[in-house]
């Protein structure tokens, strides 16, 4: 384990969740290094301070409000099958679109890429994929769409709500276009043309 890996695990040593061989290794490193000991002490102090803060939550008032509103709505969930079916249809349509767009679009990577997969600010603006979502789109819907399309947000939102996207490894521009362009939660999609 190198020093950065040790430092990465210090918060878990501070909160008591680090276990087994990792814990032994981090503790051994801390015992030999005064800087690591100081950082661990600081993290423990931060944790103690955070946990000792009084929280004034809604308590019984919030529960009363919840029980009132729950009384107006049945405890029902949309069947999981509905999501599955929709995904299959969606995937089928996306596959059709994929065939249609092959050869029409080429994707340019947005500038240099760091080891973490995020683009640098000096990336080529013209080659960027940017996207805006409909106002009612939830984070869960957006995250699900981005995961399905194989892209990640690297910048945004802009003042008018655009996010810059980058393809994950092994994903083709055609696949991404097919999925994003067909989504109901995408308001605007700017895809670079070759």
């Amino acid at each position: 384990m190198n020093r950065q890996q040790i430092e990465t695990l210090l918060p878990l040593l501070a909160n008591g969740t680090l276990e087994g061989a990792e814990r032994d290794e981090v503790e051994a490193a801390v015992a030999e290094d005064a800087d690591l000991r100081a950082e661990l002490e600081a993290l423990r102090a931060i944790r103690t301070t955070m946990q000792s803060e009084e929280t004034y939550s809604p308590g019984e008032m919030g529960l009363a409000r919840l029980m009132r509103d729950v009384g107006e709505q049945p405890a029902s969930a949309e069947p999981a099958m509905k999501t599955v079916i929709r995904t299959r249809i969606w995937q089928a349509v996306a596959a059709v679109l994929l065939v249609m767009v092959v050869g029409q679009y080429a994707f340019q990577m947005p500038g240099d890429t760091t080891e973490d997969g995020y683009s640098l600010a000096s990336g080529d603006e013209a080659g960027r994929v940017s996207i805006a979502f409909v106002p009612d789109a939830t984070e869960e819907q957006i995250r699900s769409l981005l995961l399905q399309a194989g892209v990640e947000i690297v910048a945004g939102p802009s003042a008018i709500g655009f996010y810059d996207l980058q393809l994950l490894e092994g994903v083709t521009p055609e696949q991404v276009y097919g999925i994003l362009d067909n989504s109901e939660i995408v308001d605007t999609l700017n895809f670079p043309e070759d």
Binding site: P58, Q73, A75, A77
Partner: peptide, 16 residues
């Protein structure tokens, strides 16, 4: 408080 309320309403609707 409003978000907390929404969270538990979601729990009620999505528990299954």
């Amino acid at each position: 408080s409003d978000v907390l309320h929404d969270v538990f309403m979601e729990v009620w609707r999505s528990a299954s």
